[in-house]
Design a protein around this nucleic acid. Structure first.
Lengths: 159, 159
DNA sequence: AAAATTAGGTATTTGATATAACAATGATGA
DNA sequence: TCATCATTGTTATATCAAATACCTAATTTT
């Protein structure tokens, strides 16, 4: 009879991860990582990280929003958002404007340079998406999108 | 004519992230995060993190594999794997066995306790997967799986 | 035998994220 | 009105994962 801890000292020629591959969550994470990595490369020429790109898009699309609103939208802690806003402001892509009716909050606005960079980056991001998802059939793509939405809703209870 | 940096100081009642939602990669990341969070909760009762669970499964399924093989399979840097293996060994879920033919390498093997914990955790993980993906139709699920595989292959060139 | 390579390991750095506490401002209610 | 309470942005700090540099021992190559 084999001992309790069967001390196998023969190394497998090839490591099997079949059991993990059977998990949809595992596949989801790997796919997400792959896309993240490609997106990071896509944004590098613009000196944007994913998180700074996200912030920039949201400021462009929601002129005047406060840091708290932005932090909530990005699901980032307020202290961490400060450094992101600092960076975008330092690069003169956005401005912190005082709001007269409430002197605690800042109204965030994109500068012309910020909007331009955002446009350029978006174009690159579209190409990146086309590169990765473009080879799927339209119907497959839409089913993938629906499936993902379902998964998100399953936990966060979102539309 | 509006100034260069239109200083909008009226905060939007609701922040729109429509542009980001249009990106499949964005949706993919959110879905992945949601599943990760649920999986983390699922594994917490077993005192396993996702990365330690992954390592344990691979050791159980590939008795005798080396730390280098495990690190490669998990796509983790060797130094970082050491602490993972340390933890599993300290908890007596796996053992580091010397290999007579090559005294540099360790052959990793799961103990009986390790295999048992792995089984229990796997059962919980299956329930977790059923909870999240079970409400999809079988066909939707399989299309989601295929779509994800396609995305992974697109970048890593994997089967 | 010397040089190069590999396995495992230690120490340290980086990077992202989370927590605690604070000043300034605004809102609320006795 | 005044005292309390909540919110906004901020600083400093803790935590945690992931990456880098470097080291020793063992093996392989030349």
């Amino acid at each position: 009879m084999k001992p309790d801890t069967a001390s196998d000292t023969s190394q497998p020629a090839q490591v099997s991860d079949d059991r993990l591959r059977g998990l949809l969550g595992y596949r989801l994470r790997r796919a997400s990582n792959a896309v993240q990595a490609d997106l990071a490369e896509t944004l590098k020429p613009f000196d944007l990280r994913m998180i700074t790109y996200t912030a920039l898009v949201l400021v462009v699309d929601n002129p005047g929003l406060s840091q708290s609103q932005l932090a909530a939208a990005m699901d980032v802690e307020r202290p961490n958002l400060v450094v992101i806003v600092d960076e975008l402001e330092r690069r003169e892509l956005i401005t912190r404007d005082r709001v007269p009716t409430d002197r605690r909050t800042y109204a965030l606005n994109a500068t012309l340079a910020g909007r331009r960079l955002c446009d350029q980056a978006e174009s690159a991001v579209r190409q990146h998406e086309a590169r990765i998802f473009g080879t799927l059939l339209e119907e497959e793509r839409s089913l993938l999108a629906r499936g993902l939405l379902h998964v998100i809703a399953q936990r966060t209870g979102e539309s």
